[in-house]
Structure formats: C-alpha cells, structure tokens
Simulated scan of single mutants.
Amino acid sequence: MISKKLIAFGTLAATVLVLGACSSDNKDSKDSSSDSKMEETSMSSSVDTVSGASISDKPEVIEKALGKDGNWIVAATADITFDKDVTVSGEFHDKGETSGDIYRKLALYAQDSDHKVTDEYTLTVPKMTVETENFNIVNGTVKGDILVKANGFVLNGTKVDGKVTFEKEEYKTSATLDKEGAEVTGDVTVQ
C-alpha cells in the first residue's frame, strides 16, 4: 500500500516537473524569438501580450502597449486606425532585459520563419508623440504627423505619410529617418 502511494506520488511529481520544464522551454523560446512573433500572422490577432511583446490588431491594445507601462516591442497584425493622438512613453530595453541597451520597437509588418517580410501595415493617427528614447518604427506606413521629444528616433523601412517635427535640434540630429529606404512625405522640422 505504501509503495503504491510512493509510486503515485513519484509519478505525480515527475509529471509536474516535466510540465513545468515544457512550460519553461516554451516561454524561453517565446522570449528568444520575440522579434519573430510577427511570423506568419496565422497567430490569432487577439493575442495581446506574449513574453515582453505586445502583438495585436486592436487600437486600444497597441495604445496601451506604447504607453509607459507597455512593452519594449509592439507589433501590429493588421492596419490600425486611431481617432485620437497617441503618445509613446516610458524607458524600455532591448529584448526587455534591463541590462540591454535602451531600445523600443514598433513593428508594422509580418514576417515568415526566414524573417522575410510578408506583409506591411498602416497605422493611421492624427499625431504620434514620441517621448521614448531610441524608438524604432520598422516597415509599414504611419499616416499622420509625428512629434519627437527624445533622442535616437529611427524610421527603418517605414513611410511616414505626414510630417515629422522634432522638439529640439538635438533630437533631430540624433534621429535616422532613411534607414532601409524609409521616407517622410511631409516636412521634417524643429519646433
């Protein structure tokens, strides 16, 4: 009788360990491939947060993710339209690791398992205010104006169908607006 209880307890303990290890491995693989979360948008577009990334097609989710309590990487899974201004705020680090460089990314694209861009999305907003340092918008189109109030702003393969205004010359000098063919159709100015 005691040996049966020991065997049952041992089996239960082993099952918990195996399930815990599987869960941990799954989480680790999500962490290590956050950039590829846009892969094959066969993922449900209702997924809101995945291991330090926020992936959605819902404006309210994207707006919250771009806020000070959001995520280091925010990815759209479809075109998104805001009827009000959006502010990108807070300090974030590459891959969500505090030891990483200050960095934040808005991905307006989907990619396959080989990291080839398979689709690009449009984010429509009256005005986006960027208060986060080293904020990088990758691919897709931003329809609307952008006001930059931080150093290190980057457009990477992105088209801005609007103007980009920098609060200070310092912010403009530190920005990269033409990486991977990025372009701004409107004026680029300093307030």
Rank of each mutant, 00 (worst) to 15 (best):
D79A: 10
E97T: 03
G70W: 04
V61Y: 02
N71A: 13
D94A: 13
A53G: 15
I73M: 13
K58G: 02
P59H: 05
F92P: 07
L66H: 01
K68W: 06
K95C: 14
N71F: 10
A65G: 07
G70Q: 05
I55G: 08
D94E: 15
S99V: 12
G52S: 08
D83E: 15
F92W: 08
A76D: 02
G52N: 05
E97L: 15
D57C: 10
A78S: 14
I62P: 02
T77H: 09
G96D: 01
F92C: 03
S99A: 15
G100W: 13
P59C: 09
S89W: 02
V88K: 04
K64D: 06
I62M: 04
S99P: 07
G96Q: 05
S99N: 15
T77K: 12
G70H: 03
V74A: 04
F92Q: 05
S99Y: 13
G70K: 00
N71Y: 14
W72Q: 10
G96E: 02
K84P: 06
V61K: 07
V88Y: 06
V86H: 03
A53D: 00
G90P: 05
V74I: 15
H93V: 06
F82L: 05
A75H: 05
E63P: 01
H93N: 12
I62T: 03
K84W: 11
S89N: 14
K58A: 09
A53L: 02
K64C: 04
G70F: 05
G90L: 09
D85H: 10
T87Y: 04
D79Y: 09
E60K: 13
K95R: 15
V88D: 04
A53R: 00
D57N: 15
F82R: 01
K84M: 06
L66K: 04
G96A: 11
H93T: 09
D69P: 07
D83N: 15
K95M: 15
V86Y: 03
E63A: 12
T77M: 11
D57A: 14
K58D: 11
K58S: 11
V61P: 00
E60P: 04
T77I: 10
K58N: 13
D85L: 10
E60C: 03
K64E: 05
E97N: 14
T81Q: 12
P59D: 05
G100Y: 12
N71L: 10
T77F: 02
A78C: 12
A65R: 05
T81Y: 10
E91N: 13
A75P: 03
G90C: 09
S54Y: 07
V61A: 00
D79T: 06
V74Y: 06
D57R: 06
D94I: 11
T77R: 10
I62A: 02
G90R: 01
E60T: 11
N71I: 02
K58P: 01
P59F: 07
A75D: 07
G96N: 08
V61M: 07
E63M: 04
V61W: 08
E97F: 11
I73C: 06
K84C: 09
D94G: 00
D85N: 14
T98L: 14
